[in-house]
Design a protein around this nucleic acid. Structure first.
Length: 615
DNA sequence: AGTATAATAT
DNA sequence: GATATTATAC
């Protein structure tokens, strides 16, 4: 460079390139050194440069890094490297060079001989980065456990961090994860809500029909599609909804499987088989849907495994999708594998009572006693999902009477929900227990199987509810099986309010009652969602059972019940004992989609947390 | 503490 | 390249 000396070059580089420069010169004149440094050189090495000097130029990288985050700090060790070179200049030089004017990035190597060696890896950002925290299942489990222990309200990053007691984990890490976790919870709740809405919507034939068709899926996808978590979580619900409509065959097979007793992880595969059969709607079932269904099942299984029953196979069978990951954690944190088992076992009526007792006590007494709302939620979700998977799949799209069945199911569902609600309320349960009661009640409405599931869930949810749960279930189960209609009638008065709330859109009372119950909104909404879902499931399962047993006989009862329920809805909580005997009546009542929808919406609306998105 | 958003990872 | 996950900034 005949027309330019090192200082000019340095200046040029400083102006045009964002590069740290180390000057090399044979001239050791301090003035020149100063000049170089003041013009932006990081360092000034006097030739001949010793290898050791070059080997230590990496320190500039350190300096630069330190400088940016904190302030310029010169550690003694750094200084010692400098051998008579101008240190002072370094900082300024770096700063100068880093002026991002029009950052022209050029390969640094060529700039200086020296530069080659030091610069290469000096990506600024590199060294300081702390490794990303990977929220493994275990870590997440800890997290969930901590959240549960604290209770959702008190679960703030700092406290969670303390409880988790994981080295290296920062509050920020936890905060970030908590953010995601909350998002996830919301999704779940919203899903449930949507499901509920869908169900309500189904009240009308049209809606129902649509559901059966692609539209339903579309909705599902829309809901679930967004996130992994959502998918996993949603899938169960969705599938249940979908499946329920779809086909009895699948449902039956599932039930049979379940009825055998406790589902084993391996059985999950069984589900696959049935699912595949659903093939009547290949397009629909294909892809994510099947996957979802399976996932849901797997998720519940995983929970079981984690908590009680350990089915390694199960986990293995299901590819651990992200969703399942979260899902599992949630369940796990709930802590009891029992839930999952229960649901499965629930299919056999006879075993129900037994199951209940067993489950109830252990669950209550154990970790779950103190479950936080979050836990409850998760449990519900789990239960729900499980149920769905079990129940799912019975639709026969092709069946001519599909619509009718569907309606019936819906009605059953509603009735069950109301019934449950009523029972709960009536009962003997304290206000605080209402929620739990509701959930338990819902199951009772359903088949014995359903009942068992309900009972199970209830205990888990609330320790306090244990006694009630037992009583309710034990007592209620027989009644249900034998006297659906009567039961309904009896409970009507007592729980009209609740049923209204759940079933009907309108109820003003609902909010008030909820408030009294002191349930946290999120929990509540979630539960509601669960309840709704459960009902749906129940309805579906009922239908299936009926189908198996003999549609005709079963349906009439169902209808009457439904009619009753609907009637209530119509009346907005005024529970008349009258029931709709004729199918037409039922239909009339039933076909008020907006109504139902609205009602559900209202109910969910209470749950600020979850439903915000939904609404 | 909570959110929004950037940075990264998948 | 689209998403999901985590880190950061506010």
């Amino acid at each position: 460079m005949p027309d330019m000396d090192g200082f000019n070059l340095l200046e040029q580089v400083g102006l045009e390139m964002d590069l740290p420069v180390i000057m090399l010169s044979a001239n050791s004149d301090p003035r020149l050194v100063m000049k170089g440094v003041t013009h932006g050189a990081c360092d000034y090495l006097v030739k001949p440069v010793r290898l050791e000097e070059l080997r230590n130029i990496w320190q500039h990288v350190i300096r630069k890094k330190k400088r940016s985050p904190d302030h310029q700090k010169k550690t003694s060790d750094e200084d010692k490297f400098h051998q008579g070179h101008a240190d002072l200049g370094q900082d300024p030089s770096l700063t100068c060079n880093s002026d991002h004017k029009g950052k022209i990035n050029k390969k640094r190597k060529d700039d200086d001989d020296v530069s080659d060696e030091n610069e290469p890896d000096s990506d600024d950002p590199s060294s300081q980065k702390k490794p990303r925290v990977v929220w493994s299942i275990d870590l997440h489990r800890k997290f969930v456990t901590a959240v549960n222990q604290l209770g959702i309200e008190k679960a703030v990053p700092k406290r969670i961090l303390d409880l988790m007691n994981v080295e290296g984990l920062t509050r920020e890490n936890v905060a970030s994860h908590l953010q995601k976790y909350r998002l996830y919870l919301r999704r779940i709740s919203s899903n449930a809500a949507q499901q509920a809405n869908l169900v309500a919507a189904l009240g009308s034939k049209d809606a129902y029909m649509r559901m059966g068709s692609l539209d339903g899926f579309g909705t599902y996808q829309t809901l679930a599609g967004s996130g992994r978590l959502a998918n996993s979580v949603l899938s169960p619900y969705t599938s249940s909804g979908m499946l329920g409509r779809l086909n009895s065959l699948t449902g039956v097979s599932l039930q049979n499987l379940t009825s055998s007793g406790i589902m084993q992880p391996n059985n999950a595969q069984n589900f696959n088989g049935p699912m595949n059969h659903i093939g009547q709607f290949p397009s629909i079932m294909s892809g994510s849907h099947n996957g979802n269904l399976i996932q849901g099942t797997s998720s519940s299984l995983s929970l079981d495994q984690l908590n009680k029953t350990k089915h390694p196979t199960c986990l293995g069978d299901f590819s651990p999708s992200d969703d399942s990951k979260y899902f599992a954690p949630v369940n796990s944190f709930t802590g009891s594998g029992a839930i999952g088992n229960i649901d499965y076992s629930s299919n056999s009526a006879s075993s129900n009572s037994i199951m209940l007792q067993e489950n109830c006590y252990p669950l209550n007494g154990g970790e779950f006693g103190n479950q936080s709302s979050v836990n409850r939620t998760s449990l519900h979700s789990d239960c729900f999902s499980v149920r769905l998977s079990g129940a799912s799949g019975f639709l026969d799209p092709g069946k001519s009477n599909e619509n009718l069945q569907n309606e019936t199911r819906l009605m059953n569902f509603q009735s069950s929900s109301s019934h449950l609600t009523n029972s709960l309320n009536q009962g003997h349960l304290p206000l605080g227990n209402v929620r739990e009661n509701q959930s338990s009640a819902v199951p009772s409405l359903l088949h014995p199987l359903d009942i068992s599931a309900t009972s199970i869930s209830t205990p888990i949810e609330n320790s306090r509810a244990d006694v009630n749960c037992k009583e309710n279930f034990l007592n209620s189960v027989p009644n249900f099986n034998q006297l659906h209609s009567q039961r309904w009638g009896d409970h009507k008065h007592t729980y009209s309010t609740n049923s209204d709330n759940v079933l009907s859109t309108l109820n003003s009372q609902l909010p008030a009652s909820h408030g009294n119950q002191s349930l946290d909104q999120p929990s509540f909404s979630r539960q509601t969602g669960m309840t709704l879902v459960s009902r749906l499931n129940e309805g579906a399962s009922t239908s299936l059972h009926q189908g198996e047993t003999g549609m005709s006989s079963a349906e009439p009862r169902m209808l009457s019940n439904n009619g009753y329920v609907f009637g209530q809805t119509k009346q907005h909580g005024a529970f008349t004992s009258q029931s709709y005997d004729s199918f037409d009546d039922l239909m009339t009542v039933v076909v008020k989609p907006e109504h139902d929808v609205t009602g559900i919406g209202g109910a969910f609306a209470l749950d600020t947390y979850s439903f915000g998105s939904c609404m």
